[in-house]
Design a protein around this nucleic acid. Structure first.
Length: 666
DNA sequence: TGTACCTGTCATCGA
DNA sequence: TATCGATGACAGGTA
């Protein structure tokens, strides 16, 4: 298998050269650096395979790891914001998908058949890339970018001297072409023998040379090259995709054998690139059941490469498959296996996403669905909406769940604020009836395919969507791994209500307390006391109300307390790190200072020797450092001082001092 | 089965 | 004295 991978990898490199020669920019560096979005359109109306680096955002959905200079940053945040708005509409916030790759192959340029390169039949994607796809507005920056791309490719190909030489020979073909690298060679020359329509004024070298190069490059006979070039291109591209999937993205679970099984069929289909659709897990709106319109995830059953020849634009808006083929599912779901997604060039993320939404009728579907959801929501006490994850029916939307919680508390709040809290974590005294609601909420209103979402979808706990507890109003796409499919017994409406109520609310209902736990906890003290006194409640009701309020308050207080504790721990950890860094810095400074001090001492010693050697004592003998030393006074004057030794008299400048001392001593 | 973690609850203290 | 917030401790549930 390693040999196969190596072979495919080398094939990828070769194909990189081919793509560069035909004008398709291949950013190999992005592959090696884990930025798996190598294919970009450089020009040409037919080379419309584009990829949006959804998977590059796999682990940086929060945007932290996006390079600040990344040109896609703005698009990224814009798309994130828009997608959040889509989530906020009430639709299933996460669209699981299994589709990781889509396969397209090069179709003959329509310009070959005399059609204008910018005809309306060109792909929409190309239309969106007019500045590059037209090939006429290429400016210097583009050329520089192409140069960089080509140089990158060349740098990656140093180990393959032969191919590199071939590529260099092709790219530096003598002629009127600017020496901007292999990317400048018009791809038309590869497929047609005539001059390229992109640059009609420029004479082209004989196409046969190019064919010979290509034939040699592909180790194919010249006679076979013309007939097989399309297949070769397709096969190479498939190989390229296989290499990408197998070698470059370890998250892709599909096996190469699965891909190989589909290659033949894939090649046999004449699919336009722009028609290649992203297919993933799709949601179908099943008929209302018990008043609940349930989204059913439909797992794609086709081969990995969904070479559907149906034009995506034909999808009528508003159809029930509007949620299908969501291109941003890979983005939304950070744990998706998606690696290759349909989309536009880097920077066209949001356009691609919402173009797909529009094309596939998601907009209409969302409208229909959300209208229903909102209609149901209107009948719900808004305060109840936050009660779902609370055992006692209390809203946990406290400040402790806010996004400001840093560090460890952020993790805690992230997990607790998600849907998964319903199932994860303790529910307190949930051995009683109150353990039921959160655990089985999704049982009665969700229906997922057993093979659906199994492990790759709902593990992302990082998003928070307000849940509402009304069973007939929503679906709970979270934590459905353990959820049983629809069962008849789940249709019992009273069961719904009983399950979602907490213990305290059940008790309150039993005692006919007309208020919810949220109301009891959140109301002011005066109002609460007025409630206790003014409504003629029984002692049991009053006790229960006090207990509910006390427990609810304490629960929130406990949450705040834990949040503060985590914040304190985090702050202390940061403090420790800061102090350690400061200590290390001070140690380095001390070492540096000691070293500088030693050097200064040495220089002082040398200077003293030099000065003393130039001085003479009263008898004309040079001063020796053994007997004299230089002393720097407070006023900046330097004096020679004789080292006091028994029986040694001072001379020169130090004589006066010694004399004065001698005079003072008696 | 043991362990870590999360969460709800109780008891207690101080404001 | 009642109320409330904070916090330690405990218990139950889950992975």
């Amino acid at each position: 298998m390693q040999n196969v991978k190596k072979y495919f990898t080398e094939g990828l490199i070769q194909f990189t050269i081919l793509l560069s020669l035909i004008g398709v920019r291949v950013d190999v560096d992005s592959y090696w650096n884990g930025y798996y979005s190598p294919l970009e359109i450089n020009d040409g109306p037919s080379s419309a395979f584009i990829q949006t680096p959804f998977h590059s955002l796999r682990d940086n959905w929060d945007g932290y790891s996006v390079h600040p200079k990344c040109p896609e940053l703005d698009y990224f945040f814009a798309s994130r914001r828009l997608l959040d708005e889509v989530r906020a509409l009430g639709s299933p916030a996460r669209f699981p998908t299994q589709l990781s790759a889509w396969l397209v192959h090069q179709v003959p340029d329509r310009s070959e058949f005399g059609e204008p390169p910018n005809s309306t039949s060109s792909s929409n994607v190309n239309a969106g890339l007019s500045s590059e796809s037209t090939g006429e507005e290429t400016n210097d920056s583009d050329l520089l970018a192409e140069d960089e791309s080509c140089s990158t490719v060349s740098a990656r190909l140093r180990g393959r001297q032969e191919e590199c030489q071939t590529a260099t020979q092709l790219s530096t073909e003598p002629g009127p072409y600017p020496s901007t690298g292999a990317c400048e060679i018009p791809k038309e020359g590869l497929f047609t023998s005539g001059a390229s329509p992109a640059c009609p004024e420029d004479p082209r070298p004989p196409a046969i040379d190019i064919h010979q190069h290509w034939s040699h490059f592909l180790s194919l006979p010249v006679s076979e090259f013309d007939a097989r070039q399309g297949v070769c291109m397709s096969a190479l591209f498939i190989i390229c995709v296989c290499c990408v999937i197998q070698d470059l993205d370890p998250l892709v679970p599909q096996q190469l054998s699965d891909l190989d099984a589909d290659i033949s069929s894939a090649i046999s289909q004449d699919v336009s690139l722009r028609d290649a659709m992203v297919t993933g897990s799709t949601y179908d709106m099943i008929p209302p059941r018990g008043g609940v319109r349930t989204l059913v995830a439909r797992q794609p059953r086709g081969p990995l490469f969904q070479l559907e020849s149906t034009n995506s634009s034909d999808s009528s808006p508003g159809t029930t498959t509007g949620l299908a083929a969501l291109p941003f599912t890979t983005v939304v779901n950070g744990t998706s296996n998606g690696t290759l997604s349909h989309g536009a060039l880097g920077g066209c993320l949001d356009e691609a996403v919402f173009d797909q939404i529009n094309l596939l009728g998601l907009e209409g579907c969302l409208d229909n669905m959300d209208a229903q959801l909102l209609g149901n929501l209107q009948g719900i006490d808004p305060r109840v909406l936050g009660d779902l994850d609370s055992d006692s029916g209390l809203s946990l939307e406290s400040s402790s769940r806010g996004p400001t919680s840093p560090g460890a508390s952020e993790v805690s709040s992230a997990s607790s604020s998600s849907f998964c809290e319903d199932e994860g974590g303790a529910t307190g005294y949930s051995s009683e009836a109150d353990s039921l609601p959160s655990k089985d909420i999704a049982d009665y209103d969700t229906s997922w395919s057993p093979v659906d979402l199994s492990e790759s979808v709902w593990h992302d706990h990082s998003y928070s969507t307000p849940a509402f507890s009304h069973p007939s109003a929503t679906t709970f796409p979270h934590k459905t791994i353990k959820q049983e499919p629809f069962s008849d017994e789940d249709d019992d409406g009273e069961d719904y209500e009983d399950r979602e109520l907490s213990r305290d609310e059940l008790r309150a209902r039993a005692l006919h307390v007309p208020l919810s736990a949220t109301e009891i906890v959140s109301m002011p003290v005066e109002e609460f006391l007025e409630l206790l006194e003014g409504r003629g409640l029984s002692a049991a009701q009053v006790t229960l109300l006090r207990d509910i309020r006390r427990r609810g308050k304490n629960k929130l207080a406990a949450q705040n307390c834990r949040k503060r504790k985590l914040d304190a721990i985090t702050g202390l950890q940061e403090e420790v790190e800061r102090l350690q860094a400061q200590r290390n810095r001070l140690l380095r400074e001390r070492q540096h200072t000691a070293k500088a001090l030693g050097a200064a001492g040495h220089r002082m010693e040398h200077l003293s020797r030099d000065v003393l050697s130039r001085l003479r004592d009263d008898s004309g003998r040079p001063l020796t450092p053994e007997r004299y030393t230089l002393q720097c006074g407070a006023n900046g004057r330097v004096v020679v001082q004789q080292i006091r030794r028994p029986g040694v008299a001072s001379t020169t400048a130090g004589g006066k001092t010694d004399k004065r001392k001698k005079e003072k001593k008696p």
